[in-house]
Design a binder for these strands. Sequence first.
RNA 1: GUGGCCGUAGCUCAUCAGGUAGAGCACCGGAUUGUGGCUCCGGAGGUGGCGGGUUCGAGACCCGUCGGCCACCCCA
Length: 433
Amino acid sequence: MSNIRAVRGMNDILPDETPHWQHLEQTVSRVLSSYGYGEIRLPLVESTRLFKRSIGEVTDIVEKEMYSFDDRNGDSLTLRPEGTAGCVRAAIQQGLLGVPQRLWYAGPMFRYERPQKGRQRQFHQIGVEAFGVPTPDMDAEIILLSARIWRQLGLVDSVALQLNSIGSSSARQAYRSALVEYLQQREDALDEDSQRRLHSNPLRILDSKNPQTQALLDGAPALADFLDEESRDDFARLRELLDAAGQRYVVNARLVRGLDYYNKTVFEWVTDRLGAQGTVCAGGRYDGLVEQLGGKPTPAVGFAMGMERLVLLLLESAQAVPAGRGVDAYVVAVGEAAQREALAAVEAVRDKLGELVILQHTGAGSFKSQLKKADKSGARVALIWGEDEVANGKVTIKQLRDQAAQVDNPGQQTVPREHLEATLVAAFADRMG
RNA sequence: GUGGCCGUAGCUCAUCAGGUAGAGCACCGGAUUGUGGCUCCGGAGGUGGCGGGUUCGAGACCCGUCGGCCACCCCA
């Protein structure tokens, strides 16, 4: 087709699916405000420099996945590939960091990757960031907060928490050397990708999917043995807090994160129900980032969840989302005079009974075809204006759903127009707040 | 960037040793002059992703290209 299509990896979210999105967004935002987090709305576009500095120059995201372009001033701008950098930038710029600060944001992110299940080029995240608290009770807070979200969504049985500590950056550097040394001696046993990572990002070899590589890692030095004392203590404390709160988790010693700014605690919520992209939510501590971006040293923890993946998981887990209200009434009006009457009358009804969902028939259509549409719409009643009604100043209310009513009587009543509101109030007594 | 599978009506799919396409659903109309759901009848809708090649003839075979899905990589 030569028609214009959506850009690859940038998907439309259709009315069929938006109820799931809304349910997800509403649930998350409700939980977040109950923990005192405030929403912040951030630009989709930031200076390219911001992402290079925060995410790390040699990460895949920065090297090959960013949508970057020069604006008319010649400044290099980038569609945000993740949210933390922009949030930190805003927090610094707007002077939000004098006191502990709890923030969240939602919106699209952009990464130039090959689309697959649970991964597109424009995807949506909800990010949560807590600034100014160095102690692991804050790590515990955001983990427990995320767990609460899964519970409210009915997803507890679909996800599992993985936890690790990657320590301070100096501890990590020491470990990196040890790991590289160990692996270099066995380089020919490594898969091709891992050989490459040996030079670019050796820690990522730890979560390689290659079984041979994983076997090789069994004998490798362990990250845990290289942790600095503070990281070790904080991690122990975090586990204590989670245990006390009854939060289950598994320590995954090979869990590392792709972005450079993380330190100490890292965690992921994973599922086995989404194919290859099993991470549904991930985050960790990033104590150095604020300072690195020009702010006063400020510890921070945060995470982001992938909305597309969570929506998939809701569908996969057959988690019912609250049904929409549906159509209450469908207005059938035949002829110009009737249409004029109906339009005005229904506007008056909306003034009084604003919560009713009323579908007005528009366009042409015989009596019969209009009723057919009324039925298809799922409306409970049809409001009918025909010649007779117009002539007598009346309107017919016809029941379309109530089977019992239709057995004993025609299932419809014709009332004076000024009784329409009262009749509707009675008919929808069960649905009116 | 790499690999596998796929690309026929709005949707889900079929057909075929290669002889210029069909079903179900949806849509429109009729069977009832003002009454839907069920049923019946009829209708509209496809340059078979696009381009090239083989052939008397291709949606079916070959090549290319674009697109989709899944996986690798990477990540939420």
